[in-house]
Each structure stands twice: as structure tokens, then as C-alpha cells.
Computed example of a mutant assay.
Amino acid sequence: MAPVTVITGGGRGIGAATARRLATAGHHIALCYRRDDTAAAAVLADLHAAGAQAVAVRADTTDPDQVAALFDAAAQLGPLTGLVNNAGVTSRIGPFTELRVDDLRRVVDVNLIGYVLCAQQAARRLTDGGAIVNVSSAAATLGSPGEYVHYAAVKAATDTLTVGLSKELAPRGIRVNAVAPGLVRTDIHADSGVPDRADSAAGRIPMGRAGEPDEIAAAIAWLLGPDASYATGTVLRVSGGL
């Protein structure tokens, strides 16, 4: 029986790359996206071309009813085996003193509350051998001073969620890990007001370049798969040395 994986934030960037990689590896995919129908349709076409059964579900991961509907849609593909918690947002780069409350609430809602709601649904449905991978960030330990300290703080919460949930679910044979990317070449930088940040900030990375979504997807796929059968509660840093 093929694995069935829910991927949030699947219409672009790391989520889309992960969906394509997992489809090639034989997963059936429930692809969750927020608003870009065209992008989600393009990813879905690629998944079908790879031979996967897949559905694209437009859902707001901060809404518990929409999250439940997402996982119900995934159940039509078969018993759930995995979740990639990836849907995320930033806000404009700037000093901490200029942070707006509405931006703070949005970052917390999507990057923390959304992760919790999706993980909760997955925990209710996964059985022995299931796995959750949360997409965190190297910012969780770097702090992102002068850029978005609040985003870094929320990603630190992702790491704590990963550790705590891994211990709670381990007796049921369910693994929970996280991947912490560094600077990656995705569209998320447009949200920060610096769309070329992957290139402009590359000088601070020891490897001298930004990462590619496929490089993060490879780590996620490993953590979901049988080769990582003894890994749980781990935050795997994939950051070019940051």
C-alpha cells in the first residue's frame, strides 16, 4: 500500500519540491495550498505525471474546520502515513521596535497555530510507522536580529513542538522530526520586502550560496522514510553552515 502524505504550503517552494520528490518515490499526496490555484494545479499535474494519486485542497491551516477537511480529503487516498507541516509566512524585515501587531499575529497564527492544528489531526489519524516532519528554520537558533525576531521565536516554538510531540507519540510508533533550512531560494522572501534576499544575503553563508528547495525536500523525504526509522525528536539543520 502506498504511503499517503499531507503537505501544507504545497503550491510553491519547499512544499512543492517535497511533493514532487515524494510522488516520484511512490507517495500519494494531499497537497494543501492557501490561495494560488494556478500554482497548485501545476504541481498537481506534475504529481499525476509521476504516477501518484493526488488531490489539491485549498485550505487555511489556521482554521480547524478547514484543517479537518484537508485530512478528510487525504483519507480518500488511503490511510494517512505522513504529514509535512510546511505552510509558513514571514513579515517585512525591519527592527523589532517597528513590528506591527497584525504582522505578529499572522506569523504566530500560520507558523505555530497552523502547525499545531495540523499535527493534532495527524496525531489522531496516524498509526504505527507514521511520521511528521515540521519545517522549522535556522532562524530559531540565530534569532534574526534586525530582520524578524518574532519569526525566529515562533520557529523556536516549532522545535519545541517537535521535541515534545515526538516523546508523546513515540510509544505509538509515530516519529516526529523537523528540518531547519537556512536561506533558501523561494518566493517567501517577497513577503519580507526583499525578494532578492537569497542572493543579497548569500555572503553570510559559509557555503557562499543560498539553498535550493530540492535540497530541503531531500532531507524531509529522508526523515519521512524507513531509513530514518530510529530518528525522532531531531531537528535536522540544512543551512549551508549557518
Score class of each variant (00 low, 15 high):
residue 186 T to M: 05
residue 208 G to P: 06
residue 120 Q to M: 09
residue 130 G to C: 11
residue 111 N to Q: 06
residue 28 H to K: 10
residue 36 D to A: 09
residue 73 A to P: 04
residue 129 G to T: 08
residue 82 G to P: 03
residue 101 V to F: 14
residue 23 A to H: 01
residue 172 R to C: 10
residue 56 A to W: 00
residue 225 G to R: 00
residue 46 D to Y: 07
residue 52 A to N: 07
residue 151 Y to P: 08
residue 181 P to M: 12
residue 59 A to D: 07
residue 104 L to V: 14
residue 69 A to L: 06
residue 213 P to R: 02
residue 69 A to R: 11
residue 233 G to E: 11
residue 106 R to V: 06
residue 231 A to N: 09
residue 29 I to E: 01
residue 140 A to Y: 07
residue 202 A to F: 07
residue 238 V to D: 06
residue 62 T to E: 12
residue 166 S to V: 06
residue 141 T to R: 14
residue 183 L to R: 01
residue 139 A to Q: 04
residue 107 V to P: 03
residue 174 I to N: 05
residue 155 K to C: 13
residue 219 A to Q: 03
residue 83 L to W: 05
residue 89 V to F: 08
residue 107 V to Q: 08
residue 45 A to E: 12
residue 47 L to S: 04
residue 18 T to Q: 05
residue 127 T to A: 15
residue 124 R to K: 15
residue 175 R to K: 13
residue 89 V to D: 11
residue 205 I to L: 13
residue 49 A to V: 05
residue 219 A to V: 00
residue 56 A to D: 09
residue 14 I to F: 03
residue 159 D to C: 06
residue 91 S to W: 06
residue 185 R to H: 14
residue 73 A to K: 05
residue 36 D to K: 01
residue 75 A to Q: 09
residue 115 Y to N: 14
residue 72 D to E: 14
residue 172 R to Y: 09
residue 8 T to V: 02
residue 32 C to I: 01
residue 94 G to L: 04
residue 171 P to D: 09
residue 176 V to Y: 02
residue 29 I to V: 12
residue 13 G to P: 03
residue 30 A to M: 01
residue 67 V to I: 07
residue 122 A to D: 12
residue 166 S to M: 06
residue 123 A to D: 10
residue 94 G to W: 03
residue 185 R to F: 06
residue 60 D to A: 08
residue 4 V to H: 00
residue 229 S to G: 14
residue 7 I to G: 02
residue 21 R to Q: 11
residue 174 I to C: 08
residue 69 A to E: 12
residue 21 R to L: 12
residue 167 K to Y: 11
residue 60 D to I: 05
residue 89 V to T: 14
residue 242 L to D: 15
residue 196 D to H: 07
residue 121 Q to P: 07
residue 11 G to K: 00
residue 206 P to I: 07
residue 179 V to P: 09
residue 50 A to T: 03
residue 27 H to A: 14
residue 19 A to V: 00
residue 67 V to R: 01
residue 176 V to W: 01
residue 237 R to Q: 14
residue 199 D to V: 13
residue 81 T to V: 04
residue 95 P to W: 13
residue 47 L to R: 01
residue 146 G to Y: 04
residue 16 A to S: 11
residue 146 G to F: 02
residue 28 H to C: 10
residue 210 A to Y: 02
residue 12 R to L: 09
residue 90 T to K: 12
residue 126 L to Q: 03
residue 17 A to K: 01
residue 13 G to D: 02
residue 212 E to V: 11
residue 30 A to N: 01
residue 94 G to D: 08
residue 174 I to V: 15
residue 201 A to M: 13
residue 55 V to Q: 08
residue 116 V to G: 08
residue 12 R to D: 15
residue 186 T to E: 11
residue 181 P to T: 10
residue 27 H to W: 10
residue 132 I to N: 01
residue 45 A to K: 12
residue 136 S to A: 13
residue 10 G to K: 00
residue 136 S to Y: 04
residue 227 D to K: 08
residue 203 G to D: 14
residue 134 N to I: 03
residue 201 A to D: 15
residue 194 V to P: 09
residue 41 A to P: 09
residue 227 D to P: 07
residue 91 S to G: 15
residue 143 G to A: 07
residue 18 T to F: 02
residue 132 I to Y: 02
residue 60 D to F: 02
residue 211 G to C: 11
residue 27 H to T: 14
residue 215 E to N: 11
residue 103 D to E: 15
residue 58 R to T: 07
residue 238 V to H: 05
residue 112 L to C: 10
residue 156 A to D: 13
residue 30 A to I: 01
residue 194 V to N: 15
residue 53 Q to N: 12
residue 18 T to R: 02
residue 34 R to K: 14
residue 193 G to S: 12
